[in-house]
Design a protein around this nucleic acid. Structure first.
Length: 525
RNA sequence: GGCCCCAUAGUCUAGCGGUUAGGACGUCGGCCUCUCACGCCGAAAACGCGGGUUCAAGUCCCGCUGGGGUCACCA
């Protein structure tokens, strides 16, 4: 029942567990990044990709990109494109992937479903997995009941103990079912984490995970194990949030009779409040960093500082230099807070070392491209009379974050207060994330903003001005929705959140405490 | 709440038994300078708490506390 860990001794005399890495001289190093195309390209993806990439290059191995689009309801091709584009922007070129192919394809999991189904079937035959016919309703009810009893909320394993006859009947009935992993009920599962050493988890605390969903698609757990094995992944470097499910994966390897890869979990990037990095508290989309004027090499350098210490107090280094110096013994398992200010400083270092010509080129690749300026000119030309007025009128199109300290008071419409307005802007941001997922167009934006007003009881007349102020920093601007399109999804949303924060933090000047000098309070005091 | 992970200044980190606890961002002060920025110099600022082990503990062990993650037919 207890799955033996890979050999764990031999770290004597060295305090770092990573001393074992790569530790598999016989095998070529093959690592992968496996993003799920369900949203914007995430900075955490770049972070994990970076360490995989560097580790692969350090050891002459391969870095593979695999698309985990096993969630049919949430995965989109648009998101996949955006992720690939963003990773290319960031400069981490993969050796095998859905776009460039490779000897272990296909690299998109939705194109491998038959493989997962065969493997799930194999596990059922071996008795390591079983069909489960429980409905969502029953699962929910059972979960609630178990919570009420103070038990862990996991699946109660009802279908694990179906008799042969019951099973045959259910199967014959044609009801939808899933395949679940039959976790050992006793014992413990142990694995070695490259940063933390041995991690031991009681099997009894682990749920019978769904491996194959009723739509025939695999869950992450099955797909990642099957693919990592078939693609001959040697080392799994992924985020810390996966630690708890690693025993399930270890059990799967054991059930298949496969040798598991080595595991290493990177710490999670954090918001300033130390929670897992999230879009509400910190910009998270790689497109934001691009649009806000960061250089990809600075972003990568900064990301590497989140845990990796180059040595010799060095903080600025190229990817190539990082590869040379790299070693997981120089990576800490601490929980790094993503500090936008320090990233900005680092970016400044990169910017200043560019020649004027080189910087001009970068600016042209950014927002001083003919293409982008041509997008702005139609919006601005009705509002100006001389060419010299263009740049001042366009400033907010060429800016990252805006400063609202001068306009907070104006953000609040008559009859509303700062909390109502701030909350509305924050909720609108969330609303836009949901409603304008499939194309950031002015039609979609207008509809969403109007729908939002209707839903929340705001008049468009009162809310559109604060939106305008948040997005442009001004009361006068080109048409709002076209402006939002030109500014782009990520910068627009960021500004809305920033304005909401400025509102919540705003302290209106109270008449008594006003600094206007009274006759008695002369400057002598 | 159960389980798991983490723990040096506000933040990122160095430290692998004996250090005036080092560097960086940020903050503050100064120099440079027509201004600002850059640059340079300087300052304030940290080993969460309690037990062990040891001649000696930021460093090793245990407990506590704190923070985080995870408990989906999402990854």
């Amino acid at each position: 029942m207890t799955v033996p860990a890979a050999p764990t001794e031999s770290v004597h005399g060295n305090h770092s567990h990573a001393a074992r890495w790569p530790g598999r001289d016989r095998h070529p190093v093959r690592v992968r990044i496996a993003p799920s195309p369900t949203g914007d390209p995430h900075v955490g993806t770049a972070y994990i990709a970076l360490f995989n990439y560097v580790f692969a290059k350090k050891h002459g191995g391969k870095f593979i990109l695999r698309i985990e689009d096993t969630d049919q309801t949430r995965s989109t091709l648009a998101s996949e494109d955006a992720i690939l584009r963003a990773l290319r922007w960031v400069g981490l070129q993969w050796d095998e992937g859905p776009d460039c192919g490779g000897p272990f394809g296909p690299y998109r999991q939705s194109e491998r479903t038959a493989l997962y189904q065969q493997h799930a079937q194999l596990l059922v035959e071996k008795g390591a997995a079983y069909p489960c016919f429980c409905t969502a309703e029953r699962l929910e009810a059972s979960r609630r009941a178990r919570m009420a009893e103070g038990k862990p909320p996991g699946y109660d394993r009802l279908c694990r103990y179906l008799s042969k006859q019951e099973l045959a009947d259910k199967l014959a009935s044609g009801d939808k079912y899933v395949i679940r992993l039959a976790m050992p009920l006793q014992g413990e599962t142990r694995f070695f984490d490259g940063l933390r050493g041995d991690i031991v988890i009681e099997n009894a605390t682990i749920d019978d995970q769904v491996l194959l969903k009723s739509d025939g698609f695999p869950t992450y757990h099955l797909a990642n194990v099957v693919d990592d094995h078939l693609m001959q992944i040697s080392h799994v470097i992924r985020a810390e949030e996966w630690i708890i499910s690693t025993p399930k994966h270890v059990q799967l390897y054991a059930a298949f009779g496969w040798e598991p890869p080595d595991f290493l979990h990177m710490p999670l990037l954090r918001n300033p409040d130390r929670s897992k990095i999230s879009k509400r508290k910190n910009p998270v989309s790689l497109d934001y960093y691009r649009d806000a004027g960061f250089f990809p090499e600075a972003l990568l350098n900064f990301l590497s500082l989140m845990g990796f210490a180059f040595g010799g107090d060095r903080e600025k280094f190229t990817l190539t230099e990082m590869i040379e110096a790299f070693d997981f013994t120089k990576v800490s398992a601490g929980e790094p807070v993503f500090d936008l200010q320090k990233l900005t400083w680092l970016n400044g270092l990169y910017l200043r070392e560019l020649t004027p010509e080189a910087l001009l080129m970068r600016l042209r690749q950014w927002r001083l491209s003919d293409e982008y300026l041509l997008q702005l000119i139609p919006l601005l030309k009705e509002r100006i009379e001389r060419m010299d007025q263009l740049i001042p009128a366009a400033s907010f199109f060429l800016t990252g974050d805006l400063d609202y300290s001068g306009v907070v008071a104006q953000l609040i419409p008559k009859g509303r207060d700062k909390t109502q307005t701030g909350t509305a802007l924050a909720e609108l941001t969330d609303f836009l994330e949901e409603q304008v997922r499939h194309g950031w167009t002015h039609e979609a934006l207008e509809k969403a903003c109007r729908d939002f007003c209707e839903k929340t009881g705001w008049k468009t007349k009162e809310l559109f001005m604060p939106i305008r102020l948040a997005v442009t920093g001004r009361a006068a601007s080109p048409p709002l929705f076209e402006t939002m399109v030109a500014i782009g999804k990520d910068l627009t949303r960021r500004r809305l959140r920033l304005a909401a924060q400025a509102l919540h933090a705003y302290v209106p000047p109270s008449p008594e405490a006003s600094p206007s000098p009274t006759p008695k309070a002369s400057k002598a005091s």
